[in-house]
Amino acid sequence: MPKKWLYVIDEAIKRIENDEVELGLTALQKVQEHGADLPDVMMYLAEVWYRLGHLDVAGKLLSEVLENNPQLDPSLRRECQLLLAEIALDSSDFETAQHLLYECKESGYDSIQLDLLLADLYALQDLDEVAVKYLEQARQKEPDNQDILAALGNLYFRIGEDEVAMQLLEQAGSESLELLLTKGRSLAQNGQFEQAYQVFRQALVLDRSPEVLYGATLMAFHVGRLEEAVELVTTLQAIDEEYVASYPLAADIYLSLGKTEQAIDALKQYVTLSGFDLDQIRRLIALLTQAGRYDEAKEYQQLHDQWDHETEEE
């Protein structure tokens, strides 16, 4: 690739990174206009457009490179096809992605990148067992690649092979957040709530995101640590007040503590955020009725009947 084009593209990227976006994009467009006859320059430029999120521009550029250069070097052609496939996957165009990837595969090309893209193709279509096959091929090429081990572990977990999944995730990194969350979920699904609680507490040391806080809250509730569960769910809602699933859980916790008013408030907030969960509305109506708040109960009953009618029509 001519150094001057590489320099111009790299300088344009620097401009964009320094918030001189318009200037940087203009420079990239100039390269596209004046370097159109240089396939390696256009491929590099397409990758830059792709990384910047301009998928349509990148895809069009790569298609033109393939169309205008029938004698393109085989390695460059494969590189072009693989990036086009990646763009197609990001756009959920699975048919195009499959065509491009199998064209590479049938040409005899074999690489980790191809294996990973094929795994993505099938995983995105919920064909996890096929995706596992390609990730296993990638693992054979790089047995100690932690990213591959982690991805493979998650896929095995999705297809119900928890023991294999755990072993792979442990190989990927015993202290990783991903491993702890997977362990916690697996233990919880098997009814081992105390062990799951301990695992989620470990996860909280690494990360206090809403997802981790929710898991820790749920496990604290299941093992009867109700005051701790209140503290955790309050923290979660302070971080993300629109984390919808936290409100029915908060209601469960408050009811277990005999705090009906707080449970009602939690469910009212849930209905405001989520709308159409009729079971939770019925639960709220029952609590309001028990508390003697008949006018409010009537309002939510009307809301329930309206949404129930709309659901039946659909």
Rank of each mutant, 00 (worst) to 15 (best):
M1H: 01
K4C: 06
W5M: 10
W5G: 05
W5L: 08
V8E: 13
D10P: 02
D10N: 15
K14L: 15
D19Y: 15
D19G: 07
V21H: 07
E22L: 13
L25T: 06
A27L: 09
Q32F: 03
H34Y: 14
P39H: 08
M42C: 08
M43W: 00
A46S: 15
V48R: 11
V48P: 12
G53S: 09
H54W: 15
A58P: 13
S63G: 15
E67T: 11
E67Q: 14
N68S: 14
P70Q: 03
Q71G: 13
L76S: 13
Q81L: 12
Q81P: 02
L82P: 04
L82H: 06
L83A: 00
A85R: 00
E86A: 11
D90S: 14
S92K: 14
E95Y: 03
E95A: 12
H99S: 12
L101H: 05
Y102Q: 14
Y102I: 10
E103G: 11
G108T: 10
L118A: 08
D120G: 09
A123I: 02
E129K: 14
E136Y: 10
E136Q: 14
Q137P: 01
Q137R: 12
D144A: 07
Q146P: 02
I148E: 01
I148L: 03
G153V: 08
L155F: 04
V164A: 12
V164N: 07
V164Q: 15
A165Y: 01
M166Q: 13
L169S: 03
L169C: 05
Q171V: 02
A172P: 04
S174N: 11
E175S: 09
E178G: 14
E178W: 10
L180P: 00
L181I: 09
K183E: 15
K183P: 07
G184S: 07
G184E: 03
R185E: 14
Q189E: 13
N190R: 15
G191I: 04
Q195F: 06
Q198D: 03
R201C: 01
R201Q: 14
Q202M: 02
A203H: 00
A203R: 02
R208Y: 05
S209Y: 10
S209K: 08
P210T: 11
E211Y: 07
L213H: 06
L218S: 10
L218I: 06
A220K: 08
V223K: 00
G224I: 12
R225I: 01
L226D: 05
A229K: 05
T235C: 11
A245K: 15
L249A: 01
L249N: 00
A250D: 03
A251R: 02
S256M: 08
G258I: 00
E261V: 10
L267F: 03
L267S: 02
V271R: 00
L273G: 09
D279M: 00
I285M: 07
A286E: 04
Q290W: 01
A291H: 02
Y294N: 13
E296I: 01
Q301P: 01
Q301Y: 02
Q302E: 15
Q306H: 05
E310C: 05
T311Y: 11
E313M: 14
E313D: 13
E314V: 13
